[in-house]
Amino acid sequence: MNEQMREDLTQFCRFDCDRYEFLINWLNREEISHSVIPTGSARHILIRLDKIRPYLKRYHVKTLVAHYDRVDGTPGANDNSSAVMQLLYSIDKLKSLNFAHNIQIILTDKEELMPGESLVNQGAYQLANLFREKNINNCIFFVFDMCGIGDTLISGRAGLQLLKNKYDNEIRFKKMYDHMRHFSDSLADLFLSFRDGEYFNLNSLFSDDLGFLLNRYPALQISVLPYSDALAVKNNLFRIDDEKWNEVQGKGVLSAEYREFLKPLLPQSWNSNHKSSDSIERLTDSAFDVIDEFILELAQYQIPYGEVNS
């Protein structure tokens, strides 16, 4: 994390920061073209990077997503200012690539749901719904969330797990599950060759990816954790009784039971999420290096459109 980025992060995490304003100003300052997509009360910011090198139509457009909203009264450094900054600061590098990378960025709003709200109130869900209405089919989504602490890449596969559970119960979800599975498998090569294949799949994490998945868009959550935390989560998950796990998931991923069940399983470094202690002091440079490297790796990695077709 360079000085400029740290400065921006500090500003972005201030309690009185109007994050939308900040982002618009930042993009204007850096002269990055963008557009705002409103859905309900949410304002999503779309940054297309196809001006220098147009997107190749035979490949999917890899849409990197990070939510910029936060729980009121918290700095939200790890959740999710770090990811927003990582994406913003990758723009310059992506622009300078001498090949077509098919990457666009969306900074979403309304990821953090208020009590009483359901998934359809989530910004990402509404955005995906809009994409569907506009008949946009060639997008796949990489949702960057909790990317500020650690050194190990985490692939959040809660969505896939959820779909599998649904498919086990209802056949109509089969197509969707197959679709997502195909997407996930085709991404495996990317993960396996990245940083000597050192990454973890964690099925308990989800974020905006759920909103996209429910609108039949392939989506995957990307996070970063310290290796020891990831190990601890894995080991905790091994100890869970399958029946109990299915029972809790059956109650819905937004249910209080599910959240309560998940609480002790979550990594130690996320303990401060949604709290005032989620400050930038706790972020680690290694996490920024991992994401920086991963985005560039992702830029080189193309997923043929025909193969993963919604």
């Binding site: 596969r157 495996a188 973890f200 799949n201 099925n203 990831a230 190990l231």
Partner: peptide
């Protein structure tokens, strides 16, 4: 063994 188990879980 535990480290390997965690690493292998859900790998292709």
């Amino acid at each position: 063994r535990n480290l390997m188990k965690a690493d292998l879980d859900d790998k292709p």
